[in-house]
Design a protein around this nucleic acid. Structure first.
Lengths: 334, 334
DNA sequence: TTGTACGCGTTATCAT
DNA sequence: ATGATAACGCGTACAA
């Protein structure tokens, strides 16, 4: 059996309350007593019982990373490991633990929501890549569970941290324009996700700013998967006259696009230039290395946790919205 | 304030114990009463308080996926998302929740171990890709915490689930031999990991079985990263006579090797054939598509959880060791 | 079958 | 500054 507060109290010759105060850094305890108690604690390797503490404080020190059903198939995208790294690092400094909730089906989503949230396992939630109309957001709002969304949300009550997708996309397309490309296509993300919409908007803004007419045939929707990028590129290769460059809304889709181009017997960037989005580690290793818009993925995750921590501890009452800036990384594809 | 057992009891006109029995499917409660209680529960959306329950039962229904410091830099490998998928799916059916523990530094490892394990947040642990001499294993053993290792371990007390790495490597190399390649190199995984050792052993066995002399110069150690694969391949390209084929112990390293070969102005598979290991999703999308040894990564994770569940619930006393079979997927690189 | 009463390990309030 | 003591919400012997 493990040690309890009571054990430590006995060993240190004080009361349970005093030990509790020491453990929680309560000021009113004599330094010498505090020292004595700490000595005992260290000697026997005492650690407070998490469940007991939770029951008393109504806090678990656990936050959840929840990934909705709609996108959990995208979980293999290198984006997520990076996001998770950022999140776990921040969790460590805030003394939080991270629970992972991947929803696979709507039923499971419902079920897991109850098991996880309503049984109060979590102090708060980081919500990754939701669709704009996701019911999860409403639910969390209704249940009063603190959460931060990765990616903007229009509801004024939700806190989020996002990258400036519009600016990023503009940078990408304007870079292509500067290099002389005029017939620039785009493979978008899912248009029911904010990131998909915003990157498309940036594309349009860039063209408009440079007085390049918009050709709807050059806009193909993707789904953030490699296969989706390949399919979208194949559609793009069919339009006449063929685009000479393409802005792809994620690196993973860019890999698919590259394959499609190669498969058609064309060269990158000679025949068609590519600019991606994300700068996942693989981007630099592609052949040729991918020109892309870098978003600070780890920082995205870490910032979300920082905000959530403030929310949970009641340090702030109002929703926080922070937008991080991306940067263009020029490599060889465009 | 949320509902408690007491509330439900009052609303249903029974005692708290009866409600508890209903919730926990205890047999001795009259069907009509059971029904009435369930109705109330559903009506108000009652969910038992996890912390309270844990305190009483001494179980949290949370298991941890812990990734040691040594390998957590590999976390961006597509292997992990797949493993996590398998784990989360199995967790769902076992009614477990998954906590993610990535150790970044030795200090953090020590610290997190205490915060997480000794404060009894977890019922058990899935240990991913440890080194053979990892102290973590000893520690978990000493502390009597149920755990299952992904990847074999020599200590007879540890349960593990592994893929037959020796057989997989043999299959890969024998395939190359059948295709007529004689000068076959290998890029190994880290040789302080069981998977690294075993795949190298399989390579050696295949050569021996076919009476092909072993050339130590053709064995280069990698670290399961793309950069490591590239560097190892560059070393391999320097040996004379040059290898005509290479068995690479992970797909991620294979991508690096492919780059190195291309960079040297050579073609795959015309000049050098490649066979990888893992069959991550990207393998099929490579150019050319990668011939590789497929391991059932999701199943690996799911099986680990299944075993762990039996361990935690006391369904079994003895360490379980299960080995899954890989299969060769022949595509275009070799 | 059902209810009573105690214990799980903390935190927090109230005396002292 | 310190020590009793009452919650926190649940499971479970034991009694009825």
């Amino acid at each position: 059996m493990a040690y309890t507060l009571e054990d430590i109290a006995r060993l240190a010759g004080v009361s349970r309350s005093t030990v509790s105060r020491v453990v929680n850094n309560h000021p009113s305890v004599r330094p010498e007593v505090r020292q004595r108690v700490w000595d005992v604690i260290r000697e026997v390797g005492y650690q407070p019982h998490a469940a007991a503490r939770s029951l008393a404080t109504n806090r678990t020190n656990i936050i959840g990373l929840v990934i909705p059903e709609a996108v959990s198939t995208l979980f293999t995208d290198p984006f997520f490991p990076l996001l998770i790294r950022g999140i776990t690092d921040a969790c460590y400094t805030h003394n939080y633990h991270l629970m992972l909730a991947l929803f696979s089906t709507p039923d499971q989503e419902e079920d897991l929501y109850n098991r996880l949230l309503k049984s109060r396992y979590l102090d708060g939630v980081v919500l990754a890549s939701t669709r704009v109309d996701d019911l999860l957001v409403q639910r969390l709002l209704d249940d009063g569970i603190p959460f931060v969304s990765i990616g903007r949300h229009t509801d004024t009550r939700v806190s989020y941290v996002d990258v400036d997708n519009v600016a990023g996309a503009r940078m990408a397309v304007e870079h292509l324009l500067r290099r002389g490309y005029q017939r620039i296509a785009t493979i978008t993300g899912p248009l029911n996700m904010a990131a998909g919409q915003d990157r498309l908007l940036g594309y349009k803004q860039a063209l408009a700013a440079h007085r390049v007419p918009l050709d709807e045939a050059l806009i193909q929707e993707g789904d953030f998967t490699e296969g989706g990028g390949l399919a979208a590129m194949e559609r793009l290769l069919d339009v006449q006259p063929r685009p000479t460059a393409v802005f792809v809304a994620s690196d993973t889709m860019a890999m698919g696009a590259l394959r499609a181009i190669r498969r058609a017997g064309l060269e990158v960037p000679a025949d068609i230039a590519i600019v991606g989005f994300d700068d996942v580690p693989q981007a630099a290793f592609m052949n040729p290395p991918l020109t892309t818009v870098r978003q600070p993925i780890e920082l995205l995750g870490a910032t979300a946790v920082d905000i959530l921590a403030d929310q949970v501890t009641g340090k702030t009452d109002i929703p926080q919205r922070v937008v991080l800036m991306p940067e263009l990384v020029v490599r060889a594809t465009g």
